[in-house]
Protein backbone atom coordinates (compact mmCIF):
# COMPACT_ATOMS: atom_id res chain seq x y z
CA UNK A 1 0.00 0.00 0.00
CA UNK A 2 2.66 2.40 1.00
CA UNK A 3 4.04 4.56 -1.74
CA UNK A 4 7.45 3.80 -0.36
CA UNK A 5 7.03 0.12 -1.01
CA UNK A 6 6.34 0.71 -4.64
CA UNK A 7 9.73 1.86 -5.80
CA UNK A 8 12.11 -0.75 -7.13
CA UNK A 9 14.20 0.90 -9.77
CA UNK A 10 15.24 4.56 -9.75
CA UNK A 11 12.81 7.12 -8.41
CA UNK A 12 12.37 8.88 -11.75
CA UNK A 13 11.66 5.80 -13.80
CA UNK A 14 9.25 4.54 -11.14
CA UNK A 15 7.22 7.69 -11.52
CA UNK A 16 7.16 7.36 -15.28
CA UNK A 17 6.08 3.74 -15.16
CA UNK A 18 3.54 4.52 -12.48
CA UNK A 19 2.16 7.34 -14.61
CA UNK A 20 1.92 5.09 -17.65
CA UNK A 21 0.25 2.34 -15.66
CA UNK A 22 -2.28 4.73 -14.16
CA UNK A 23 -3.00 6.13 -17.60
CA UNK A 24 -3.69 2.61 -18.77
CA UNK A 25 -5.96 2.03 -15.78
CA UNK A 26 -7.89 5.21 -16.59
CA UNK A 27 -8.23 4.15 -20.22
CA UNK A 28 -9.48 0.72 -19.18
CA UNK A 29 -12.03 2.32 -16.88
CA UNK A 30 -13.32 4.50 -19.69
CA UNK A 31 -13.60 1.54 -22.03
CA UNK A 32 -15.36 -0.45 -19.33
CA UNK A 33 -17.86 2.35 -18.89
CA UNK A 34 -18.65 2.47 -22.60
CA UNK A 35 -18.88 -1.31 -22.70
CA UNK A 36 -21.30 -1.38 -19.78
CA UNK A 37 -23.56 1.22 -21.39
CA UNK A 38 -23.54 -0.62 -24.71
CA UNK A 39 -24.17 -3.96 -23.04
CA UNK A 40 -27.19 -2.55 -21.28
CA UNK A 41 -28.51 -1.59 -24.71
CA UNK A 42 -28.04 2.18 -24.70
CA UNK A 43 -26.20 4.82 -26.67
CA UNK A 44 -22.94 5.74 -24.93
CA UNK A 45 -22.88 9.27 -26.37
CA UNK A 46 -26.35 10.01 -25.06
CA UNK A 47 -25.42 8.47 -21.74
CA UNK A 48 -22.33 10.65 -21.36
CA UNK A 49 -24.33 13.72 -22.34
CA UNK A 50 -26.97 12.93 -19.76
CA UNK A 51 -24.29 12.25 -17.19
CA UNK A 52 -22.52 15.54 -17.86
CA UNK A 53 -25.78 17.48 -17.85
CA UNK A 54 -26.79 15.87 -14.58
CA UNK A 55 -23.44 16.62 -12.99
CA UNK A 56 -22.65 20.11 -14.26
CA UNK A 57 -25.85 21.37 -15.89
CA UNK A 58 -26.70 24.14 -13.45
CA UNK A 59 -25.07 25.94 -10.55
CA UNK A 60 -27.17 24.08 -8.04
CA UNK A 61 -26.31 20.76 -9.70
CA UNK A 62 -22.63 21.60 -9.31
CA UNK A 63 -23.28 22.42 -5.68
CA UNK A 64 -25.03 19.09 -5.25
CA UNK A 65 -22.01 17.31 -6.74
CA UNK A 66 -19.70 19.11 -4.32
CA UNK A 67 -22.02 18.21 -1.43
CA UNK A 68 -21.86 14.60 -2.47
CA UNK A 69 -18.07 14.60 -2.71
CA UNK A 70 -17.60 16.04 0.78
CA UNK A 71 -18.07 12.94 2.95
CA UNK A 72 -16.03 10.81 0.52
CA UNK A 73 -13.19 13.30 0.71
CA UNK A 74 -13.14 13.56 4.50
CA UNK A 75 -13.37 9.83 5.13
CA UNK A 76 -11.03 9.12 2.21
CA UNK A 77 -8.27 11.25 3.71
CA UNK A 78 -8.51 9.23 6.92
CA UNK A 79 -8.46 5.95 5.00
CA UNK A 80 -5.43 7.11 3.00
CA UNK A 81 -3.51 7.88 6.20
CA UNK A 82 -4.42 4.47 7.66
CA UNK A 83 -3.38 2.64 4.48
CA UNK A 84 -0.08 4.52 4.46
CA UNK A 85 0.57 3.10 7.91
CA UNK A 86 -0.34 -0.37 6.65
CA UNK A 87 -3.62 -0.47 8.55
CA UNK A 88 -6.50 -1.59 6.38
CA UNK A 89 -9.32 0.41 7.95
CA UNK A 90 -12.51 -0.30 6.06
CA UNK A 91 -14.76 0.90 8.82
CA UNK A 92 -15.49 4.36 7.45
CA UNK A 93 -19.10 3.41 6.86
CA UNK A 94 -19.75 2.64 10.50
CA UNK A 95 -17.68 5.58 11.67
CA UNK A 96 -19.71 7.91 9.43
CA UNK A 97 -22.96 6.45 10.75
CA UNK A 98 -21.92 6.87 14.36
CA UNK A 99 -20.66 10.37 13.58
CA UNK A 100 -24.13 11.25 12.31
CA UNK A 101 -25.55 9.79 15.48
CA UNK A 102 -23.28 11.89 17.66
CA UNK A 103 -24.11 15.06 15.75
CA UNK A 104 -27.82 14.30 16.03
CA UNK A 105 -27.59 13.76 19.75
CA UNK A 106 -25.82 17.11 20.11
CA UNK A 107 -28.15 18.98 17.75
CA UNK A 108 -31.33 17.69 19.34
CA UNK A 109 -30.15 17.17 22.89
CA UNK A 110 -28.28 20.36 23.65
CA UNK A 111 -30.38 23.28 22.44
CA UNK A 112 -27.89 26.10 21.99
CA UNK A 113 -29.22 29.34 20.62
CA UNK A 114 -26.15 30.56 18.80
CA UNK A 115 -25.67 28.85 15.41
CA UNK A 116 -21.88 28.99 15.66
CA UNK A 117 -21.90 27.23 19.01
CA UNK A 118 -24.57 24.74 18.00
CA UNK A 119 -22.83 23.74 14.80
CA UNK A 120 -19.39 23.57 16.40
CA UNK A 121 -20.80 21.42 19.16
CA UNK A 122 -22.53 19.06 16.73
CA UNK A 123 -19.47 18.73 14.51
CA UNK A 124 -17.24 17.99 17.49
CA UNK A 125 -19.74 15.46 18.81
CA UNK A 126 -19.74 13.74 15.41
CA UNK A 127 -15.96 13.62 15.22
CA UNK A 128 -15.67 12.27 18.76
CA UNK A 129 -18.29 9.60 18.09
CA UNK A 130 -16.51 8.51 14.91
CA UNK A 131 -13.18 8.40 16.73
CA UNK A 132 -14.70 6.33 19.50
CA UNK A 133 -15.97 3.81 16.96
CA UNK A 134 -12.65 3.48 15.15
CA UNK A 135 -10.85 3.48 18.49
CA UNK A 136 -12.95 0.50 19.51
CA UNK A 137 -11.88 -1.37 16.39
CA UNK A 138 -8.24 -0.43 17.03
CA UNK A 139 -8.57 -1.63 20.60
CA UNK A 140 -9.91 -5.01 19.51
CA UNK A 141 -7.04 -5.24 17.05
CA UNK A 142 -4.27 -4.17 19.41
CA UNK A 143 -5.38 -5.89 22.57
CA UNK A 144 -6.90 -9.10 21.26
CA UNK A 145 -5.31 -9.44 17.85
CA UNK A 146 -8.57 -9.33 15.89
CA UNK A 147 -7.64 -8.53 12.31
CA UNK A 148 -8.42 -4.87 11.69
CA UNK A 149 -10.34 -5.65 8.51
CA UNK A 150 -12.74 -7.93 10.34
CA UNK A 151 -13.03 -5.64 13.36
CA UNK A 152 -13.88 -2.60 11.24
CA UNK A 153 -16.17 -4.56 8.90
CA UNK A 154 -18.24 -6.19 11.61
CA UNK A 155 -18.48 -2.92 13.52
CA UNK A 156 -19.91 -1.35 10.35
CA UNK A 157 -22.93 -3.62 10.55
CA UNK A 158 -23.31 -3.00 14.26
CA UNK A 159 -23.15 0.78 13.68
CA UNK A 160 -25.81 0.73 10.96
CA UNK A 161 -28.12 -1.28 13.17
CA UNK A 162 -27.32 1.00 16.10
CA UNK A 163 -28.57 3.97 14.07
CA UNK A 164 -31.78 2.10 13.29
CA UNK A 165 -32.14 1.01 16.89
CA UNK A 166 -31.86 4.56 18.17
CA UNK A 167 -34.10 5.96 15.43
CA UNK A 168 -36.72 3.41 16.41
CA UNK A 169 -36.27 4.52 20.00
CA UNK A 170 -35.14 7.69 21.70
CA UNK A 171 -33.88 9.64 18.66
CA UNK A 172 -36.76 8.81 16.35
CA UNK A 173 -39.67 10.92 15.24
CA UNK A 174 -42.79 9.16 16.44
CA UNK A 175 -45.38 8.41 13.77
CA UNK A 176 -43.22 9.42 10.81
CA UNK A 177 -43.57 6.09 9.09
CA UNK A 178 -39.84 6.14 8.31
CA UNK A 179 -36.90 5.65 10.57
CA UNK A 180 -35.85 9.24 10.97
CA UNK A 181 -35.23 11.80 13.66
CA UNK A 182 -37.15 15.04 14.05
CA UNK A 183 -35.81 17.96 12.03
CA UNK A 184 -32.92 19.83 13.60
CA UNK A 185 -33.52 23.34 14.92
CA UNK A 186 -32.47 26.00 12.36
CA UNK A 187 -29.43 26.93 14.48
CA UNK A 188 -27.94 23.49 13.93
CA UNK A 189 -28.00 23.57 10.14
CA UNK A 190 -24.74 23.89 8.30
CA UNK A 191 -24.73 27.20 6.37
CA UNK A 192 -24.31 27.16 2.59
CA UNK A 193 -21.67 29.24 0.91
CA UNK A 194 -23.11 31.98 -1.30
CA UNK A 195 -20.71 31.64 -4.22
CA UNK A 196 -20.61 27.94 -5.06
CA UNK A 197 -23.90 26.83 -3.56
CA UNK A 198 -22.17 24.24 -1.41
CA UNK A 199 -22.36 23.73 2.33
CA UNK A 200 -19.57 24.69 4.68
CA UNK A 201 -18.44 21.10 4.90
CA UNK A 202 -16.71 21.16 1.54
CA UNK A 203 -14.07 23.79 2.36
CA UNK A 204 -13.57 22.03 5.70
CA UNK A 205 -12.88 18.77 3.86
CA UNK A 206 -10.39 20.41 1.51
CA UNK A 207 -8.62 21.86 4.55
CA UNK A 208 -8.50 18.40 6.09
CA UNK A 209 -6.91 17.02 2.93
CA UNK A 210 -4.26 19.72 2.94
CA UNK A 211 -3.65 19.04 6.62
CA UNK A 212 -3.31 15.34 5.89
CA UNK A 213 -0.57 15.99 3.35
CA UNK A 214 1.33 18.24 5.74
CA UNK A 215 1.00 15.62 8.47
CA UNK A 216 2.23 12.84 6.22
CA UNK A 217 5.24 14.56 4.70
CA UNK A 218 6.26 17.31 7.11
CA UNK A 219 5.89 15.86 10.59
CA UNK A 220 7.61 13.19 12.60
CA UNK A 221 4.27 11.48 13.16
CA UNK A 222 3.75 11.25 9.41
CA UNK A 223 7.26 9.88 8.97
CA UNK A 224 6.46 7.28 11.61
CA UNK A 225 3.27 6.28 9.81
CA UNK A 226 5.15 5.85 6.55
CA UNK A 227 7.90 3.80 8.20
CA UNK A 228 5.31 1.68 9.98
CA UNK A 229 3.56 1.02 6.68
CA UNK A 230 6.80 -0.15 5.12
CA UNK A 231 8.03 -2.30 7.99
CA UNK A 232 6.84 -2.76 11.52
CA UNK A 233 10.24 -3.82 12.78
CA UNK A 234 11.91 -0.81 11.17
CA UNK A 235 9.39 1.42 12.96
CA UNK A 236 10.28 -0.12 16.32
CA UNK A 237 13.97 0.15 15.51
CA UNK A 238 13.46 3.84 14.74
CA UNK A 239 12.00 4.33 18.22
CA UNK A 240 8.33 4.51 17.26
CA UNK A 241 5.74 2.51 19.14
CA UNK A 242 3.57 0.78 16.51
CA UNK A 243 0.52 0.31 18.79
CA UNK A 244 0.53 4.01 19.65
CA UNK A 245 0.84 4.98 15.98
CA UNK A 246 -1.92 2.55 15.05
CA UNK A 247 -4.26 3.93 17.67
CA UNK A 248 -3.48 7.54 16.75
CA UNK A 249 -4.07 7.12 13.03
CA UNK A 250 -7.24 5.10 13.62
CA UNK A 251 -8.59 7.77 15.97
CA UNK A 252 -7.75 10.43 13.42
CA UNK A 253 -9.43 8.52 10.59
CA UNK A 254 -12.45 7.85 12.77
CA UNK A 255 -12.71 11.52 13.69
CA UNK A 256 -12.57 12.52 10.02
CA UNK A 257 -15.22 9.94 9.12
CA UNK A 258 -17.35 11.01 12.07
CA UNK A 259 -17.03 14.60 10.92
CA UNK A 260 -18.13 13.47 7.46
CA UNK A 261 -21.21 11.88 8.97
CA UNK A 262 -21.99 15.00 10.99
CA UNK A 263 -21.59 17.26 7.95
CA UNK A 264 -23.72 15.00 5.80
CA UNK A 265 -26.72 15.20 8.08
CA UNK A 266 -26.26 18.77 9.32
CA UNK A 267 -25.66 20.11 5.84
CA UNK A 268 -27.86 17.91 3.67
CA UNK A 269 -30.58 15.91 5.41
CA UNK A 270 -31.01 18.21 8.43
CA UNK A 271 -32.19 15.20 10.36
CA UNK A 272 -30.81 11.74 10.98
CA UNK A 273 -32.21 9.28 8.44
CA UNK A 274 -31.80 5.53 8.25
CA UNK A 275 -29.10 4.32 5.88
CA UNK A 276 -27.72 7.77 5.10
CA UNK A 277 -24.18 6.33 5.09
CA UNK A 278 -24.87 3.29 2.91
CA UNK A 279 -21.97 2.63 0.57
CA UNK A 280 -19.89 5.54 1.87
CA UNK A 281 -17.31 3.22 3.43
CA UNK A 282 -16.27 1.69 0.17
CA UNK A 283 -16.30 5.08 -1.58
CA UNK A 284 -13.85 6.33 1.04
CA UNK A 285 -11.55 3.44 0.14
CA UNK A 286 -12.11 4.10 -3.56
CA UNK A 287 -11.17 7.76 -3.42
CA UNK A 288 -8.19 7.05 -1.16
CA UNK A 289 -6.80 4.57 -3.68
CA UNK A 290 -7.67 6.70 -6.70
CA UNK A 291 -5.84 9.52 -4.93
CA UNK A 292 -2.83 7.20 -4.60
CA UNK A 293 -3.02 7.52 -0.80
CA UNK A 294 -1.88 11.13 -1.14
CA UNK A 295 -4.29 13.30 0.87
CA UNK A 296 -4.32 16.30 -1.50
CA UNK A 297 -4.86 14.01 -4.48
CA UNK A 298 -7.89 12.57 -2.72
CA UNK A 299 -9.60 15.92 -3.48
CA UNK A 300 -9.83 15.38 -7.26
CA UNK A 301 -10.58 11.68 -6.69
CA UNK A 302 -13.52 12.50 -4.42
CA UNK A 303 -14.81 15.14 -6.85
CA UNK A 304 -14.61 12.63 -9.69
CA UNK A 305 -16.59 9.99 -7.82
CA UNK A 306 -19.06 12.52 -6.41
CA UNK A 307 -19.89 14.08 -9.78
CA UNK A 308 -20.04 10.69 -11.49
CA UNK A 309 -22.68 9.60 -9.03
CA UNK A 310 -24.58 12.84 -9.26
CA UNK A 311 -24.61 12.51 -13.04
CA UNK A 312 -25.54 8.84 -12.96
CA UNK A 313 -28.94 9.67 -11.49
CA UNK A 314 -29.86 11.77 -14.48
CA UNK A 315 -28.36 9.15 -16.79
CA UNK A 316 -30.72 6.57 -15.38
CA UNK A 317 -33.65 8.97 -15.62
CA UNK A 318 -32.93 10.27 -19.14
CA UNK A 319 -31.32 7.32 -20.90
CA UNK A 320 -32.22 4.35 -18.74
CA UNK A 321 -28.74 3.17 -17.83
CA UNK A 322 -29.01 1.82 -14.26
CA UNK A 323 -27.14 3.80 -11.59
CA UNK A 324 -25.67 0.51 -10.43
CA UNK A 325 -23.43 0.82 -13.47
CA UNK A 326 -21.46 3.48 -11.62
CA UNK A 327 -21.00 1.06 -8.73
CA UNK A 328 -19.58 -1.58 -11.10
CA UNK A 329 -17.33 1.04 -12.61
CA UNK A 330 -16.07 2.16 -9.20
CA UNK A 331 -15.24 -1.38 -8.17
CA UNK A 332 -13.47 -2.18 -11.42
CA UNK A 333 -11.57 1.10 -11.42
CA UNK A 334 -10.21 0.37 -7.95
CA UNK A 335 -9.14 -3.07 -9.17
CA UNK A 336 -7.38 -1.52 -12.17
CA UNK A 337 -5.61 0.98 -9.94
CA UNK A 338 -4.65 -1.76 -7.49
CA UNK A 339 -3.17 -3.81 -10.28
CA UNK A 340 -1.39 -0.77 -11.70
CA UNK A 341 0.20 0.28 -8.41
CA UNK A 342 1.01 -3.15 -6.99
CA UNK A 343 4.63 -4.12 -6.58
CA UNK A 344 4.69 -6.33 -9.60
CA UNK A 345 3.00 -3.68 -11.65
CA UNK A 346 6.06 -1.51 -11.23
CA UNK A 347 8.79 -3.94 -12.07
Amino acid sequence: MDGGRLGVSGAGSVLQTLGARLGLAALLSGLTAVLLVVLSGHDPVAAVQALAAGAFGTRSLIGAGLDRSTPYLLAGVGVALCFRAGIINIGAEGQIAVGGLGATAAALGAPVGSPVAAITLALIAGALAGAAWSGLAALLHLVRGVHEVLATLLLNFVALLLVQLLLAGPLGQAGAGFLQSPRFPPSARLPRLPLLDVHLGFPLAVLAAAGGTVLLWRTRLGFGLRVLGASRSAARYAGFRPPVLTMLVMLLAGALAGLAGAIEILGLHRRLVEGFSNGFGFRAVTVALLGLLEPVLVVPAALFVGFMEAGALSMQREVGVPTAMVTVLEGLTVLYVLAATSRRGLR
Binding site: D2, G3, G4, R5, L6, G7, A11, R218, T219, R220, F223, R226, V227, A230, S231, S233, A234, Y237, A238, G239
Partner: peptide, 29 residues
Protein backbone atom coordinates in the same frame (compact mmCIF):
# COMPACT_ATOMS: atom_id res chain seq x y z
CA UNK B 1 20.75 -5.16 13.01
CA UNK B 2 21.32 -8.33 10.99
CA UNK B 3 18.02 -7.83 9.18
CA UNK B 4 18.89 -4.94 6.91
CA UNK B 5 15.96 -5.44 4.57
CA UNK B 6 13.16 -5.12 7.13
CA UNK B 7 14.68 -3.51 10.22
CA UNK B 8 17.87 -1.61 9.56
CA UNK B 9 16.52 0.15 6.52
CA UNK B 10 13.25 1.11 4.93
CA UNK B 11 14.05 -0.13 1.46
CA UNK B 12 11.39 1.93 -0.29
CA UNK B 13 12.51 5.23 1.24
CA UNK B 14 15.25 7.61 0.17
CA UNK B 15 18.80 7.57 1.49
CA UNK B 16 18.11 10.88 3.25
CA UNK B 17 15.08 9.45 5.07
CA UNK B 18 17.01 6.32 5.98
CA UNK B 19 19.88 8.34 7.36
CA UNK B 20 17.36 10.19 9.54
CA UNK B 21 15.49 7.03 10.54
CA UNK B 22 16.73 7.06 14.12
CA UNK B 23 17.02 10.80 14.48
CA UNK B 24 16.06 12.16 17.88
CA UNK B 25 12.53 13.49 17.91
CA UNK B 26 13.80 16.75 19.41
CA UNK B 27 15.83 17.51 16.29
CA UNK B 28 13.71 19.31 13.74
CA UNK B 29 12.77 17.39 10.58
Amino acid sequence: PADRAQTGLVRGMSIADNLALRQDRRTPR
